[in-house]
């Protein structure tokens, strides 16, 4: 393999570069290379984002949860409508609406709202997440499916019910797990 001086020089240079790389990695401190641009570790960044999100939701949607817990469900829905104008498309609004509608006995509408929430943020089904609402979603889907199936049997052309049943199956599928 090493037939002439050029080969020997190339091999020696290779060894030198590999040794330099190894020395660099062994002697590096965890903070090296991250001070220059101030960018934190990707994992730290993700954790900060997740915690910031929870704090944001508590700050803005906390009053809705308080009204809901006091049993003032209509007022909670009105407050949610106000928040929807400020944060359109925020999944947490759909989650709280689903919760409130379920407490009001409107299971079908609760299922639709919960499906929108889960599509927007899968954390609501994650037992490890502080946003976990798995029990609520499971019970709504469980009660919703037979109810909606019966209703669809009576009115096979009811597109709204068919769409809500699809939402309930979606929730059931997400509750069953698997890849996302």
């Amino acid at each position: 393999m090493f037939k002439d001086r050029f080969d020997c020089l190339s091999a020696a240079a290779l060894l030198l570069v590999v040794a330099a790389l190894a020395a660099l990695l062994v002697t590096a401190r965890p903070s090296d290379g991250r001070q220059s641009n101030g960018t934190p570790d990707r994992r730290v960044e993700q954790e900060m984002l997740a915690q910031a999100r929870v704090a944001f939701l508590e700050r803005h949607y906390g009053p809705v949860a308080t009204l809901r817990d006091r049993g003032e469900l209509q007022s909670a829905l009105l407050k949610l409508e106000e928040l929807d104008r400020n944060f359109p498309g925020e999944a947490h609004g759909s989650l709280l609406r689903g919760d409130i509608l379920y407490r009001m006995g409107l299971v079908d509408r609760a299922v639709s709202s919960l499906a929108v929430a889960v599509r927007g943020n899968g954390d609501y089904l994650d037992p490890a997440s502080p946003l976990n609402q798995r029990d609520l979603i499971a019970v709504a889907a469980e009660q919703g499916i037979p109810l909606l199936r019966d209703r669809l049997r009576g009115q096979p052309d009811d597109r709204q019910t068919a769409a809500t049943l699809k939402d309930a199956y979606y929730l059931k599928s997400r509750l069953a797990g698997g890849c996302e």
Binding site: R34, D41, A128, E180
Partner: peptide, 11 residues
């Protein structure tokens, strides 16, 4: 290394 991320939630 710092540029590799592992999910703590989700599948």
């Amino acid at each position: 290394p710092p540029f590799v991320a592992f999910s703590e939630r989700g599948s």
